[in-house]
Design a protein around this nucleic acid. Structure first.
Length: 237
DNA sequence: AAAACGTACAACCGCGTAGAT
DNA sequence: GATCTACGCGGTTGTACGTTT
C-alpha cells in the first residue's frame, strides 16, 4: 500500500505565495502557534499544502529570521561546521541563530562552494584539490571541552566505535564526553604521542559499521577514526 | 533594445523516521 | 509487530532578476 498524499493536490495552490496568504498564515500562527501543519491550511483558510505552509513559515515568515547578507564570521562558521557535519543543513542552521537550513544550503551552493574552489579547496572533502593523496587530520580533543551541541554530534560516532571496541574485548575507558573541536593539528609530537602507545584503533566510519576489523580491509575513502585516551583523530585518507 | 546566459533563492518533491494505533 | 500518519530533512527544480553580448 502506497503512501497517501499529504494533501488534496487538486485543491491546493502552488508556486509563489501572495501577500494575502502570508498574512493569513502569520495571523493564524500568532493565535494558535506552530504545529499540526496538516490541519493548519484549512483552519487558516489557506488553499495550500501543510508542508508548504510549514516551509513558508520556517524559511520566510518566522519573526526571528535574520535575513540579509552572511557575515564573514558566519561564512567561516558554516565552512567549519560543514567540514564536521557534512550536508546536515538543519544541524548547521541550529548553530547560526536567525538562519534557516534552506538559506544556508542555498548560500553554500551559490557562494561558499565557489569560494572554497577559488581557494583550491574541495568543498566536498575540505581537502586541497591538488593534494588529494595527502592525509589530513582533524583532531577532536577531549580537553577543555565546551560545546555541548558538538558533543551531541560526536557522541554517536564515539559510541559506535566504543561498541565495536567492546566486541573486540578492549577495555572501555571512563568517557569524558564534554567535547570540543580543535583545529587540525600539524604538531608531529602530538601525532607521535597518539601513534606511540596510546592509539587504540584506526578504521573508517563506514567499514567499522560494517564490521570490518582492520583498515587493510577497507577500500573506501571514508574518514578514518583513531581513538586515544583523551582525543579522537579523524584522518581523511 | 533584446536575446542569451548566469545567478540566487523560494518552493516543491520524495524519502526516512518517530509516534500513534 | 504491522500499518498508518505527520513531520522534518536534503536534493532538486522553477523562475525572477541581473549581466553580458
Amino acid at each position: 500500500m502506497g503512501r497517501s498524499p499529504c494533501c488534496e493536490k487538486e485543491h491546493t495552490n502552488k508556486g509563489a505565495w501572495t501577500k494575502e496568504e502570508d498574512e493569513r498564515l502569520i495571523a493564524h500562527i500568532k493565535v494558535h502557534g506552530e504545529g499540526c501543519w496538516r490541519s493548519l491550511p484549512k483552519a487558516a483558510g489557506l488553499q495550500r499544502c501543510g508542508k508548504s505552509c510549514r516551509l513558508r513559515w520556517i524559511n520566510y515568515l518566522r519573526p526571528d529570521l535574520k535575513r540579509g547578507n552572511f557575515s564573514d564570521n558566519e561564512d567561516e562558521l558554516i565552512i567549519k561546521l560543514h567540514s564536521l557535519l557534512g550536508n546536515k543543513w538543519s544541524m548547521i542552521a541550529a548553530r547560526l541563530p536567525g538562519r534557516t537550513d534552506n538559506e544556508i544550503k542555498n548560500y553554500w551552493n551559490t557562494h561558499i562552494r565557489r569560494k572554497l574552489l577559488s581557494r583550491g579547496i574541495d568543498p566536498l572533502t575540505h581537502k586541497p584539490i591538488n593534494n588529494i593523496d595527502n592525509v589530513s587530520n582533524l583532531t577532536i580533543s577531549f580537553k577543555n571541552m565546551q560545546d555541548k551541541s558538538i558533543q551531541e554530534e560526536i557522541s554517536p560516532i564515539w559510541n559506535q566505535q566504543e561498541e565495536l571496541l567492546r566486541r573486540q574485548n578492549h577495555r572501555c575507558p571512563d568517557l569524558n564526553l564534554d567535547l570540543c573541536i580543535s583545529p587540525p593539528s600539524q604538531d608531529n609530537k602530538y601525532l607521535d604521542n597518539i601513534n606511540v602507545g596510546k592509539e587504540r584503533t584506526l578504521m573508517c566510519f563506514s567499514c567499522s559499521s560494517a564490521g570490518l576489523q582492520n583498515r587493510e580491509e577497507c577500500q573506501c575513502y571514508e574518514p578514518f577514526l583513531s581513538i586515544s585516551n583523551n582525543s579522537v583523530l579523524v584522518k581523511y585518507m
